[in-house]
């Protein structure tokens, strides 16, 4: 058995954390070959070659592969698929865009957001916003799988594995990139941060969200938000934590002014320690919090910042 694993490459750089977590989940299934695809991907390939458990790296460079558009990226992966029993990727928004397309082109089912690898055919995945964990056994000849990174530890350093370049089928010409709006930040990345501070509707305004950010900076944390806070414009979309946002499992998760709707819990309930600050003693978030503080956040958060 052999695994082709799509490395997470952004603007020519390897996102090490999600890729190393996916490698760790995949390596029990067979020899792992990491594919780094992009307009430029050689540097990413060199970085991937140093992940423990990687046997080989394939570098695919072509202008059509920039910005990870689904159609050319899926065609690229399918052109390599013959040699592998498993095609896997960390469940990033790029992979969620591409991998179902790959699966359909191969006439197999995709197995999305896998949180546990049981054996070569059998996988666990959360369904119903994490209210149930389903174990599924695939009858398909090839398995196309995305891996929920918060469920796996990152593989360490190793290698270097050998790096080869591969031919690119080219551009089907169905879509083109227009622009990216990416907020630059010095804060850690949300899905790999050790500490996450999230704000909800209770924060009240975009201006007051600065309080959440200040607490985050004090803790060296990434900033998250509930859907309600994003919908209201307090926070950008890529901060949303939950069933339909990002899934995080940091050492410490601090939820401020968040009620604890099931869709929010789906994205953070595997955090090691959960702290909730909410003025409503009956807020459901307290049912899963390790430490709950019933207080007005506008008093508690400044005090917390001062005392930390």
């Amino acid at each position: 058995m052999a695994v082709l694993l799509l490395g997470e490459v952004n603007d020519g750089e390897l996102a090490l954390d999600p890729t190393a977590k996916a490698v760790n989940a995949a390596k029990a299934l067979g020899e792992v070959t990491v594919l780094c695809a992009g307009a430029s991907a050689a540097a990413a390939g060199a970085a991937a070659a140093k992940i423990e458990g990687v046997a080989k790296v394939l570098v695919a460079e072509h202008p059509a592969l920039s910005h990870r558009l689904a159609e050319p990226t899926a065609a690229m992966i399918v052109s390599l698929a013959g040699d592998y029993s498993h095609i896997m990727a960390p469940a990033t928004s790029d992979a969620k865009n591409v991998m179902p397309r790959v699966a359909a082109l191969l006439d197999v089912m995709v197995i999305s957001d896998v949180s546990g690898v049981v054996d070569a055919d059998t996988f666990e995945r959360p369904i119903y916003a994490g209210n149930a964990i389903q174990t599924v056994r695939s009858k398909d000849a090839k398995k196309v799988v995305t891996l929920r990174t918060s469920a796996f530890k990152a593989a360490g350093k190793g290698g270097p594995a050998k790096v080869e370049t591969v031919d690119v089928p080219g551009d089907p010409g169905l879509s083109e990139w227009v622009e990216d709006k990416v907020a630059e930040s010095d804060r850690p990345e949300l899905t790999s941060a050790g500490v996450v501070v999230s704000g909800g509707r209770g924060v009240g305004s975009q201006g007051d969200f600065a309080l959440i950010e200040k607490l985050a900076d004090k803790l060296g944390a990434a900033v998250g938000a509930s859907r309600a806070a994003v919908d209201a414009g307090f926070a950008p979309n890529d901060w949303q934590v939950g069933q339909t946002g990002k899934v995080v499992a940091p050492e410490l998760y601090v939820a401020v002014g968040i009620s604890g709707a099931i869709q929010h819990l789906a994205g953070m309930k595997d955090s090691k320690i959960i702290v909730a600050i909410n003025k409503d003693p009956d807020a459901p978030i307290f049912q899963i919090a390790d430490y709950g503080l019933v207080a007005d956040l506008f008093q508690a958060v400044p005090e917390l910042i001062e005392k930390l």
Binding site: S93, W177, D180, V182, A183, D238
Partner: peptide, 8 residues
Amino acid sequence: VDGGLQTI
């Protein structure tokens, strides 16, 4: 998308 917004 994960990093923010992408227009295509």
